[in-house]
């Protein structure tokens, strides 16, 4: 709770120390073989970078605060006050079951040829099939529904399509990951590919995987989306952040899902 200016100064200082000797980043990294620091046998969930207490908070199926949003999401999912509920089409015992659905997002929507993430799919369902207005990104309702649907895939690995129609989006997301940005002129890859495991002030740098989200972040003291998490990183390197739900963040989300390889979805994960 001390002055933020002091914090930022220390932060910048730490970064300069951490990256003063970093080499220029690779331009074209297309396969796991091209990134020895993050080969599949080295891929680790952010869970492994937490203290035992934070890990326990995530694995406690009662006390993990993320379940407050999962519970609320389930309530909204089955709510039929405004017409057909989500459950009406997506009962867990029916063909429309959403168990495993979250593993396939983001994906290219065949109707519009646009890349759609889970949050957007829920909103599309509302406008196309329920004749209801969209929820605002990061609203408690959209977070809760996303939390519930993502939780239905807990323990399953990502299974996204990155070729065909999805390829341009994938390439765009990958480019963003390796692009230096902000006043600190840092790319995502410099922390999360090249420097994971090193200390940055009190934190051990994680590999920057997306499998905890939507999730509960201690720093936020609340539940949030992956896009909010990504935006924090952009702000952290003093880059102009994009809007939540922005196309570039969805493309990055696709790259991150692919990059997480065999990691299991933990949502609702708990992170620092």
């Amino acid at each position: 709770m001390s002055g933020m200016a002091a914090r930022l100064t220390v932060f910048c200082g730490a970064l300069i120390v951490a990256f003063a000797s970093e080499k220029m980043i690779a331009q074209e990294i297309t396969s796991f073989a091209d990134r020895p620091d993050l080969s599949p046998d080295k891929v680790q969930s952010g869970f492994n970078f937490l203290t035992a207490e934070t890990q326990q908070l995530q694995t406690d199926s009662f006390a993990n605060p993320g379940y407050l949003w999962v519970d609320k999401g389930q309530r909204l999912f089955t709510d039929s006050k405004e017409g057909k509920s989500c459950q009406f089409c997506h009962d867990a015992n029916s063909e429309g079951s959403l168990i495993g659905a979250a593993t396939r997002y983001p994906l290219v929507d065949s109707a519009t040829n646009a890349l759609v993430n889970l949050e957007e799919r829920i909103n599309l369902c509302r406008t196309r099939h329920q004749q209801l207005p969209e929820f605002i990104y990061e609203s408690d309702e959209l977070l809760s529904l996303t939390a519930y649907v993502a939780n239905l895939s807990q323990g399953m690995p990502f299974d996204v399509v990155v070729d065909g129609d999805a390829e341009p989006f994938f390439n765009q997301g990958r480019e963003y990951f390796f692009q230096r940005k902000g006043q600190l002129n840092l790319a995502c890859s410099q922390c999360h590919d090249d420097s994971w495991g090193k200390m940055l002030r009190g934190d051990r740098i994680s590999q920057g995987h997306s499998n905890a989200f939507p999730g509960y972040r201690l720093e936020w003291q609340t539940f949030g989306s992956l896009h909010r998490r990504i935006r924090d990183c952009d702000v952290g390197v003093r880059a102009e952040p994009y809007q939540l739900g922005a196309d570039i963040y969805k493309s990055l989300e696709l790259y991150l899902s692919w990059r997480a390889a065999d990691l299991h979805i933990e949502s609702p994960g708990v992170r620092r």
Binding site: F62, A63, Q221
Partner: peptide, 13 residues
């Protein structure tokens, strides 16, 4: 007995 409730507990600080 365990209980948890959704609330921001906004500190005012």
């Amino acid at each position: 007995l365990k209980a948890m409730i959704q609330h921001e507990m906004e500190t005012g600080y």
